[in-house]
Design a protein around this nucleic acid. Structure first.
Length: 818
RNA sequence: GGGCAAGUGGCGGAAUGGUAUACGCUGUAGUCUCAAAAACUACUGGUCCAAAAGGCCGUGUGGGUUCGACUCCCUCCUUGCCCACCA
């Protein structure tokens, strides 16, 4: 009679073990232990359904977490939900369901889906950002920043999405379109809250050799985004006026070549200096550029502009320069004003277009650097020699910059000036589903923070959240009306909510104790468990989320709340699982692969193994469901192999294979190369089953035991089942395979008994010869042996050997005369 | 326009400057079966050859360095991602 237990049926074992693990609190972290290891994966947005991308990310993180746990670390691997945000509100409007209800039911559903994965998440540390127990601390942090002058209100031109009716950060304007809804973004002047991230620009800049292990692409990307430019602010007097125009430049060495000035259309001085004659033209131009959306500005690279009728005076040589207005000068960069000269391509283009006679260049070539003459273009970018520059002629650019600055500073006409590409972080959102800004607007006292004892300032459930161009919270008049904490007069609340990136900027600290009542996070625990040891996430968060988190961390550091300035020791970017059509998965395209069906068909373990195996973790490629069969077959073969296991003794080759695999799998997991780790396991399995078949040998229990341990992070359920059935006897208590110690390889077993030496003639492989390890130390012997080969001697016939290259134990190459 | 990454069989992908194509998928043939599926076994880059042995060609293109190059250097082409008037 056939025993039905001999068949591998995933659905019969997976749920069972998930429940047993939870019952035994297998993945609970004893946070009092000292050998901590914090594994973090970016928490998901509860959009409704888990998709393959989530599996890809979280399986990777889980494999790694399991691996570290088996290495003896106390692994802290929490999960949560980034639960505030626009989609909830949009879904609410569309389907007439409250954002909170929509979000919470999605979370419930996604948690069920997460459970099928068999992830080793640390229980009871869940963070859900839309709960007031969490966002209370967003508010607290906001007020702390306000007190330190880091949160402030300002009026600016902002990216405005007319469909979502909200302000967008620069990084959420993609090709001039809203990243969420795809509507064309327009410019609109609004007053809103900013966080002064620029105050941390210098500290956010990555040093050459940072103490933490983050991908170079992320570090470079952030540094470019911060875009620190050191230069000078030069004052150009305005002719027949007391006014002066402050111009930012990084190229003081070209100051003698200045031919004209350009002001950004939004520059406040324009109205004061414009001539009567030009007034109409200039104002028309200003109106026109105001209407231009970012998309239009980008598309028309042709530089347009108008003359103001005014002239400025170059402080270095008293030359008279016409002042123009053009939108290629950006009000947000430097001082919103620049001087044009022949060295800069854009300036030249602009001058040519409007018939401004450019002064000749004042930088010349003929300069050597690193033993070669530089091109003129290179000289223009900072390595030339000055000519026609008065007393500074003949100086190298670098020196001239310093000397000219010195002189201008002495005359009070310039000062060193540093500007950044990074702007302050606009955090106001005119939407409902977010953290209410904890501020009160009082007629007498101005802006007053909500007192700490009144936090959290709860988001009211009842509001009209349909977009009307004003924040939805403003529609709840009762909520809006309050009293000023200072003067007790009637006052108004702030109707705006915070950007959800505030939520995700510190959630990893809240994980430590999500229920903590009297502080944002547990300082003592943080000292123990932070920083995060490894952080898995998407490359798209290089300029957003991960930069903001670093900013928050540095702010906490300044408040003395944490004792580190970088919150994650290592950052790993994951790739993207595309739909089967090779396109990015999206609901509108209908190519979203839901893991539920795959799990039902193949079991979670096979899906996990396949997800780990089918492409490198940082790769991007389409999901091809049929191929999961390969992973399933692999697991089934492991399952069946147990029938071949007995007390067989391992020979030298067996030991070699086992230790090689231990080394490879451990090394690959540590290096986030899950695909080759699985391949190594497959290879070893091929070896084991071949030996079980061909040689009529059995597989030893030791081999089977190690195989299950190495496979456990990838296929946690089936390895546990096999472990419990065959390797725990009899079970005195619950001894999980996941609590086993990760095996160590012994280098003494890694040596091959026989060395295989590849023989080449003139670099072409002709044969390979085998010999005992010891013998390959003797080149003469190897050479003799190689010449004995018929295939080799055939190619050496009639040729004289000029040279023999021998790389010990690897290759021997005969090089002939001809 | 700038920056970064990458181009390897029919496909996903492996390869510290040292036997290119590991591992998996697919395909072909076979074993088993009344049959099919599954499983198992063998083969599976191209080309010359009846076949085998063997030879030649093969990692986007063209060059270079080297005894030896997917790997290092230069040219060009292509694709992807990110940024984009930054004075």
């Amino acid at each position: 009679m056939k025993n039905k237990n001999t068949k591998y049926i995933p659905r019969e074992i997976e749920k069972k073990w998930q429940e047993i693990w939870e019952r035994h609190n297998l993945y609970g972290s004893d946070l009092s232990k000292s050998n901590k290891y914090y594994v973090l994966a970016e928490f998901p947005y509860p959009s409704g359904d888990l998709h393959m991308g989530h599996w890809f990310t979280f399986c990777g993180a889980d494999i790694y977490a399991r691996f570290k746990r088996m290495q003896g670390y106390t692994v802290f691997f929490p999960n949560g939900f980034d639960a505030f945000g626009l989609p909830a509100e949009n879904a609410a409007i569309k389907r007439n369901i409250h954002p909170r209800d929509w979000t919470m039911s999605n979370i419930k559903r996604m948690k069920e889906q997460f459970a099928t994965m068999g992830g080793s998440f640390t229980y009871d540390h869940e963070v859900i950002t839309c709960l007031s127990e969490y966002y209370k601390w967003n508010q607290w942090i906001f007020i702390e920043m306000f007190k330190k002058g880091l949160a402030y209100r300002a009026k600016t031109m902002s990216n405005w999405c007319p469909v979502d009716q909200t302000v967008l950060a620069n990084e959420h304007v993609v090709d001039g379109l809203c990243w969420r809804c795809g509507a064309e973004v327009v410019q609109k002047e609004v007053e809103q809250w900013f966080l002064r991230i620029t105050a941390y620009a210098d500290r956010l800049k990555w040093p050459e050799n940072p103490s933490v292990d983050w991908p170079e692409s992320v570090r470079r990307g952030q540094n470019d985004w911060i875009g620190k430019s050191e230069g000078a602010e030069v004052e150009f007097g305005v002719e027949n006026s007391e006014l002066s125009i402050k111009v930012f430049t990084t190229r003081l060495d070209t100051l003698y070549g200045a031919t004209f000035l350009v002001l950004a259309p939004e520059h406040p001085l324009i109205a004061k200096i414009v001539s009567e004659k030009q007034k109409k033209t200039v104002e028309a131009y200003q109106r026109e550029t105001e209407k231009k959306t970012e998309l239009m500005r980008k598309e028309t690279r042709v530089k347009t502009g108008v003359f103001t009728g005014a002239y400025a005076v170059n402080p270095i040589n008293k030359e008279k320069l016409p002042v123009w207005v053009s939108d290629y000068a950006l009000i947000t960069y430097g001082t919103g004003a620049l001087f044009g000269d022949a060295h800069d391509e854009r300036d030249s283009e602009f001058a040519k277009r409007y018939g401004i006679a450019l002064k000749p260049t004042v930088i010349t070539g003929n300069r050597e650097k690193d033993g070669r003459i530089l091109s003129l273009k290179e000289c223009f970018t900072g390595y030339g020699t000055l000519v026609d520059s008065g007393e500074f002629s003949g100086l190298a650019s670098m020196t001239a910059k310093k000397k000219i600055l010195e002189k201008l500073v002495k005359n009070g006409k310039a000062k060193p000036y540093v500007t950044y590409h990074l702007h302050d972080w606009s955090v106001s959102r005119q939407r409902y589903w977010g953290t209410p800004v904890p501020m009160i607007h009082c007629r007498n006292c101005g802006i007053v923070p909500v007192p700490e004892k009144d936090l959290p300032l709860e988001l009211p459930y009842e509001v009209d959240y349909a977009p009307k161009g004003k924040p939805p919270l403003a529609s709840n008049i009762e909520w809006m009306r309050t009293k000023c904490p200072k003067c007790d007069e009637t006052a108004k609340r702030d109707a705006e909510t915070m950007d959800t990136f505030v939520d995700s900027s510190w959630y990893f600290l809240r994980y430590l104790d999500p229920k903590l009542k009297d502080a944002a996070f547990d300082k003592k625990r943080s000292a123990k468990i932070m920083p995060v040891d490894i952080y898995f996430g998407g490359a798209e968060h290089t300029l957003g989320h991960t930069l903001y988190s670093r900013f928050f961390t540095k702010f906490f550091y300044d408040l003395g709340m944490v004792d580190f300035e970088e919150y994650a020791k290592r950052r790993v970017n994951h790739g993207i699982v595309l739909g089967p059509d090779g396109e990015k998965m999206s609901k509108s395209k209908g190519n979203v692969v839901n893991p539920d069906a795959e799990v039902a068909k193949y079991g979670a373990d096979a899906v996990r193994v396949f997800v780990a195996f089918f492409m490198p973790y940082d790769g991007t490629g389409p999901w091809i469901s049929d191929r999961i069969w390969g992973a399933y077959r692999f697991l089934e073969r492991v399952w069946k192999l147990k029938e071949k296991a007995d007390d067989h003794k391992m020979d030298r080759q067996d030991l070699l294979m086992m230790h090689k695999t231990i080394k490879k799998v451990g090394g690959d997991i540590a290096g986030i190369k899950f695909n080759t780790a699985v391949a190594a396991l497959m290879e070893w399995l091929n070896y084991l089953s071949r030996k079980a078949k061909n040689k009529k040998q059995k597989v030893s229990w030791e081999e089977y035991r190690v195989l299950l341990i190495l496979l456990a992070p990838f296929a946690p359920h089936m390895t546990e089942e096999l472990w419990q059935r065959f390797l725990v006897k009899p079970p005195p208590s619950f001894l999980s395979v996941h609590c086993q110690k990760w095996p160590k390889y012994d280098p003494k077993f890694l040596e091959e008994e026989e060395a295989t030496i590849v023989v080449q003639v003139n670099g072409r492989v002709r044969d390979s010869v085998k010999m005992q390890n010891a013998k390959c130390k003797m080149q003469n012997y190897v050479e003799e042996k190689a010449r004995e080969s018929e295939r080799v001697s055939k190619h050496l016939e009639g040729r004289s050997v000029k040279k023999v290259i021998y790389i010990e134990g690897k290759i021997i190459n005969f090089v002939t005369e001809d």
